[in-house]
Design a protein around this nucleic acid. Structure first.
Length: 571
RNA sequence: CGGGGCGUGGCGCAGUUUGGCUAGCGCGUCGGCUUUGGGAGCCGAAGGUCGCCGGUUCAAGUCCGGCCGCCCCGACCA
């Protein structure tokens, strides 16, 4: 390929609204251009990279025994009614009606479609296991797109779905996908961390996320500094402290006036104490009952953990009116002492290690000091209810500490169980002739997000540094003097020889000054640069430079093609 | 949706405070000459409803109101 016959449009300066390196560089180098917030063009360079990533994914999926298919973007409402997700999926799918008034959504995911498909085709356990996948554009009406390709409304995703007769089969299918993912990221040069994760709106268990640690990521992961433990912040847990023995109370609790002190900060200031001596009482509504969640004053309640403990999906914070009814006080003074019997009290493990603490009095403008667990109030149960913070002790080893990192989520794998197969009637007969719901797994890779992640991980102040496997071209030949017939012929010959050897090579034959070509080559980030200029003629040597580290090589002109192929093999 | 910032040729910006005459600058683009191993020089040229609508005024890029778009921070996810 020649630059003059291709489509390369770099920008001298980065667009001013591009903030993070991947967005800045991908746009400046002419890989992507925004069309609307969270909606992008992939220009020819960007599209090559996207397809190369897709191809790696495809090869590894096939190698793992998955079979590719292609499903529609538009999905009828009825399908989503059957799974119960039409009104609950977040963010709400983009919806529209066709000319007859039939409602559809733009598929944000494909459990409904694939489960229905497989339900029709597969009726016997003998036809299992099956794993199907597609690489397709997904639509999510994100509340806020951001960070270039990191979070967008329209993106390329590989989604795979496994169907097994039982849990043991699912475990095998899941492990195969896990291994395939490890290979995918390895081939793309991405150093990912596999972390424990929550299932979110997909529903499921044993979920793992493949994360790239990166300051521009939107997720937070916690890793133990001593063992292998790594988890998304949403579900990270720390080792609970030793509970204090009961009966160590310093004295009886005392009601104190705290006029206007409705927040942890106000209470600590007014009582001249610290937040870790306060018990925060958060009233929640779970289904039709109320729960009081207790966490230390300086901690954040993790609603996901509480919902998991309560085994409900229907959990929310109580509203002001409910709080006032339960506490018979204004919002801001809830406490565990004297709540109605019907309110279940669940305390975070840390509460058991506190003594003489401050709690809300369930009375407007008042708190209770010197309150003690087991004496003045008794939680119905203890559980892990809080978000961990950096420095917390690891839950999995003796003396490790958790450290927090920002990360980009690149892939997510779940065990779904029978949630969708039951709802959508994906049943098979087992050996005994009984109907059983197929056991499903679901496995997603953010293909277009990977492109941004690679750039985030691999760039310098001059531009992108593509790993060879996904680079738009492996080699760029800079013909510095296109008007010199000898050089032009030599460059064309070298280009053709490399192409004949299967090399993805680009010849920069533009009428541009050397500096423009050098700078564009570094910005675009080809792994290997070949320069043909006056010096080539004088020395009989062709100059090569490796993008990653700037390492230079000189090879004799006549054997250049083979030498270049050799150097490429080592990249 | 809440909070903050920003909308002026393809890209980056000035001008808006204090309204005033043909709306400027750099890059890029087109033509010409020179130059030619790290984003060239000179000459000439094209390209803009100043985000949109309405209002104030003799006069609006500039003041007022409404709307739209984009970016960043918070609740979601590949």
């Amino acid at each position: 390929m020649r630059v003059t016959e291709f489509y390369i449009h770099t920008l001298r300066e980065a667009p001013s609204d591009a903030q993070i390196p991947s967005d800045r560089l991908l746009r400046r180098a002419g890989f992507i251009r925004p069309v609307a917030a969270g909606v992008f063009n992939y220009l020819p360079l960007g599209y090559i990279v996207l397809r190369r990533i897709e191809q790696i994914v495809r090869e590894e999926m096939n190698a793992a025994g998955a079979v590719e298919l292609f499903m529609p973007v538009m999905q009828p409402r009825e399908l989503w009614e059957r799974s119960g997700r039409w009104d609950t999926f977040e963010p709400q799918p983009l919806r529209f009606k066709d000319r007859t008034g039939r409602e559809f959504c733009m598929g944000p995911t494909h459990e409904e479609v694939i489960t229905t498909l497989v339900a029709d085709d597969i009726t016997s356990y003998k036809q299992l296991p099956v794993t199907l996948y597609q690489i397709q554009t997904k639509f999510r009406d994100e509340i806020r797109p951001r960070g270039g390709l990191i979070r967008v409304k329209e993106f390329t995703m590989k989604d795979a779905y496994s169907f097994d007769l039982d849990r043991a089969g699912l475990d095998l299918s899941y492990d195969k996908m896990y291994e395939a993912y490890v290979r995918i990221f390895d081939r793309c040069g991405l150093q990912v961390e596999v972390v424990l994760a929550e299932a979110g709106s997909m529903g499921g268990f044993d979920t793992r996320e493949f994360m790239l640690i990166c300051e521009n990521g939107e997720d937070t992961v916690f890793k133990c500094d001593a063992c292998e433990y790594a988890s998304n912040a949403d579900c990270a847990s720390s080792r609970p402290p030793q509970p204090l023995p009961a009966g160590d109370a310093a004295g009886p609790p005392e009601l104190v006036d705290t006029p206007g002190a409705k927040t942890i900060e106000a209470v600590t200031r007014m009582l001249d104490t610290t937040a870790d001596r306060l018990v925060k009482t958060l009233l929640c509504r779970a289904g039709d009952r109320f729960v009081a969640a207790l966490v230390r004053g300086d901690r954040e309640l993790n609603e996901g953990k509480l919902a998991a403990y309560l085994q409900t999906e229907d959990l929310r914070m109580a509203n002001d009116e409910e709080v006032e009814r339960l506490t018979r006080a204004q919002v801001g003074y809830a406490g565990p002492i004297g709540l109605p019997e019907a309110v279940t009290i669940v305390a975070d493990h840390e509460i058991a290690a506190m003594q003489d603490c401050v709690v809300g009095a369930n009375k407007t403008d008042a708190h209770i000091v010197g309150a003690n667990v087991g004496v003045d109030f008794r939680p119905d149960d203890y559980a892990d209810l809080r978000y961990v913070v950096a420095g917390d002790p690891c839950s999995e080893c003796e003396d490790g500490r958790l450290q927090g990192y920002r990360a980009i989520e690149l892939a997510h794998i779940f065990k779904l169980g029978t949630k969708y197969s039951e709802a959508l009637g994906a049943l098979v007969q087992d050996e005994s002739g009984r109907q059983r719901a197929m056991v499903m797994g679901c496995y997603g890779v953010g293909v277009s997000r990977m492109m941004a992640a690679i750039v985030e991980q691999s760039h310098d102040d001059k531009g992108i540094i593509w790993p060879r496997a996904v680079a738009p071209f492996e080699v760029v030949i800079l013909l510095l003097d296109p008007d010199d017939a000898d050089l032009a012929i030599g460059a064309a010959r070298l280009h053709d020889q490399l192409e004949a050897r299967g090399c993805r090579v680009l010849l920069d034959d533009r009428q541009e000054r050397a500096g423009v070509k050098f700078n564009d080559a570094e910005l675009i980030g080809y792994p290997l640069r070949v320069v043909l200029g006056k010096r080539t003629k004088d020395s009989g040597q062709i100059e090569l430079q490796r993008r990653r580290d700037g390492e230079q090589f000189n090879v004799p002109t006549d054997a250049a093609a083979d030498d270049i192929m050799g150097i490429l093999q080592e990249l």
